[in-house]
Every structure is written in structure tokens, then in C-alpha cells.
């Protein structure tokens, strides 16, 4: 799986309220509708700035706060291909794997806003094309790779009816 897009940069501690606010997420299960409000409280025009494949690039503790799965789903539906951060909050991390949104943990200080990023998930390589550098990334645990490769937890359960990591 190869991902390609430009970086939209955010800071540390981006919580799930910022990703999709509570005043929107309780109203509907229509994720295309919710996607319009992604990151609204930090950047009201964010949704319109995204080209398909673009990536959110952030600092530490991305996705902290509430357990709302609307957060990764709204990001996916805003046509963001991956989130790249120094570290992630754990519930958000699980939710991304379960819903099929790729997460990359690496040193994001080497990525500036607008940089062109290429990621090869199989090889575990992130290439900053603008700067011409490779940035090492933390590999995903096997259980998560299994769920991701099945296409998310819904597909994993459709296939096995329960958890199957053998």
C-alpha cells in the first residue's frame, strides 16, 4: 500500500473534540457530512484545503480525549490518506486500526507544511520528497497488521466470527 500526499501540519495534543466536535458528532451517522467539520475548531477552512491523499502531520499525543470513532471516520471521509505523528493516544490508535486509517509514528519535526510525503506501508518507509529524506517509522504490532490487512475489525469478524490471530 503506497500513500502519497502533501502534509497539513498541526501541533501537540490534538484531541478528538478538535478532530470532530461534539456539537456535530452526536447528530448523525453520515460520515461524509461529518467530514466537512474535520479540524473545524483549529482551522475552519481545513476541509476545503484537502486534496485526496493528503496527510495530517502532528506532534505528540494525537487523538487524545474521547473514544469517538467518528474521529478516524471523519478523517477518512475527508480524503486524508494517513495520520503521521510523534505519538498517538491509545483509544484513537485502536480506532484507526479498526476502521482502516493508516497511522505512522515518526519524528515529524522533519516535515513542514506542504511537504510532499510518500509512504510505503509494507516496507515501513516514509519519504519526504520535498526535502529528499527518508524518516524511520515505528512498525505496527502484528495483531494490528493482521486487523489492517483483513481490512479492519468489521472484515476480520465477518471472516472469522471472533478474534483470530493464529
Amino acid at each position: 500500500m503506497n500513500l502519497k500526499g502533501k502534509a497539513h501540519k498541526f501541533g501537540d495534543d490534538i484531541n478528538t473534540d478538535y478532530i470532530i466536535s461534539g456539537r456535530h458528532k452526536f447528530k448523525t451517522l453520515d460520515m461524509k457530512e461529518l467530514a466537512k467539520y474535520v479540524m473545524e475548531d483549529l482551522d475552519p477552512d481545513f476541509y476545503s484545503k484537502v486534496s485526496p491523499g493528503d496527510m495530517i502531520v502532528a506532534g505528540r499525543n494525537f487523538g487524545c480525549g474521547s473514544s469517538r470513532e467518528q474521529a478516524p471516520l471523519a478523517i477518512i471521509n475527508a480524503n486524508i490518506s494517513a495520520v503521521v505523528a510523534k505519538s498517538f493516544a491509545r483509544i484513537f490508535y485502536r480506532n484507526c486500526i479498526n476502521t482502516g486509517l493508516p497511522l505512522i509514528e515518526c519524528d515529524t519535526d522533519q516535515i513542514d507544511p506542504g511537504d510532499e510525503i510518500n509512504i510505503d506501508l509494507q516496507k515501513g518507509v516514509l519519504h519526504n520528497a520535498t526535502k529528499g529524506i527518508d524518516i524511520p517509522i515505528t512498525p505496527l504490532p502484528e495483531v494490528m497488521l493482521k486487523i489492517l490487512s483483513d481490512g479492519g475489525l468489521v472484515e476480520h469478524f465477518r471472516k472469522y466470527g471472533t478474534f483470530n490471530f493464529d
Binding site: 483509544i91 480506532n95 479498526n98 468489521v154
Partner: peptide, 8 residues
């Protein structure tokens, strides 16, 4: 956890 973990 999130909603998909809850379902599982």
C-alpha cells in the same frame, strides 16, 4: 474503546 471494538 471505540464503537467497532464495542461491537466485537
Amino acid at each position: 474503546v471505540g464503537s467497532t471494538d464495542l461491537a466485537a
